[in-house]
Write a protein that binds this DNA or RNA. Structure first.
Lengths: 197, 197
DNA sequence: GAAAAAAAATGAACTAGTTTAAGACTTTTA
DNA sequence: TAAAAGTCTTAAACTAGTTCATTTTTTTTC
């Protein structure tokens, strides 16, 4: 995908919450970096300090931690038109605990820490954009944290399929298990049970 | 607590992220409503559309849902200097699924939906305040949702005690169980085990 | 397009957490 | 301050989800 196309995508995403003038659009896109990452490659690894916040133009990635037994726990899948990264490390400059790995060849736009600051100084409207973006993410993470402790694995699986029909077809069962918080063996059982119903 | 004291508290909280002039402080506090709620009373119930976002001046409250079996799942405890409410219902005007109940006599400051809008129009700096506030909440809910699906109940209990030492002494074991996502019986076992260690 | 690697399925033995029930202790209320 | 209501503890029987081991199926790689 060329510059123009990916800039159109990201500007469309932003225009859901704030209106920008042509000048502001130009200023904004000038602060972005194009990033490509091949299937199976890391965008970022635990221990590093996150350099960017990302917008996905094309592809699919998974964000995960490894626990002390080396078991992966996926915190999100990101596909086209999603934002991802590690806001915690990005804002505190502390080393991240997350890995971000491409599950397909992917194209992203990144904004660096320095440019993120410049953005707020030069186009304060972006405070509003991020206020709304975070507000919405917050709502979904509050719900997810509730579901994690109150629903059965089968209910969480059914919810995921309903909520993310586009994602479920693009990821492996194993990764879905790591997102739901169960073993690959158990998700296999759940799926064959659900299909039998 | 009188107006002055509670206004000082909320302004101190806000000054961690943004600086306000005297005039802005006056404008801001004029948009707030004082609310008192007695122990065991509801600040809000499921089915209602949330009218306010709240800041706790004094007391302790729990925010929870009831599942289809009538079992409560607590999504947060809020004490002095915390913000609470249901941003989802507050912003979408859809009926909330949450109950907010005082576990102690409590005093709050509320901002109504109308005043929240006025606030952003008149003091746009508040976009920044809420951007940062939501950003930070988001970090902790992302972590919580990961912990919910990846840690054992015992680990979640130990984490809670470490992270919220001030809260753990003020709530019942039963409510802590409803937060951790286990039965009161099982938390009782965990606690006696942890104490024996 | 064959070989290697990874993902998915299945099953048996196991463990973390639930359910139910009963008794002891603590707090609330009249 | 006594009675009632709610909270906490303990224990036995149960169930959702894990672990480990093996086979089959699919995907990747050269």
């Amino acid at each position: 995908m060329n510059y123009k196309e990916s800039h159109t995508l990201i500007l469309n995403n932003i225009s859901r919450f704030i209106d920008l003038t042509e000048l502001e659009k130009q200023k904004y896109t000038s602060l972005l970096t194009e990033i490509k990452v091949k299937k199976k490659d890391f965008l970022m690894q635990a221990g590093e300090v996150t350099k960017y916040e990302y917008f996905i133009v094309k592809g699919c990635l998974k964000v995960y931690t490894l626990d002390e037994n080396g078991i992966p726990h996926i915190s999100m899948f990101a596909i086209e038109d999603y934002w991802t990264g590690d806001i915690s490390s990005f804002t505190t400059k502390e080393p991240s605990r997350y890995y971000i790995k491409a599950t397909e060849n992917s194209e992203l736009l990144g904004i660096s820490r320095v440019n993120y600051k410049i953005l707020f100084q030069e186009i304060p409207k972006f405070e509003r954009f991020y206020r709304i973006l975070y507000q919405r993410s917050l709502v979904s993470y509050i719900r997810r944290s509730n579901h994690g402790i109150s629903l059965t694995a089968e209910e969480r699986y059914i919810n995921f399929k309903k909520k993310y029909p586009k994602i479920v077809t693009r990821i492996t069962q194993k990764d879905l298990a790591a997102y739901i918080g169960i073993t690959p063996e158990f998700i296999s059982k759940i799926i064959s049970k659900v299909n039998r119903m």
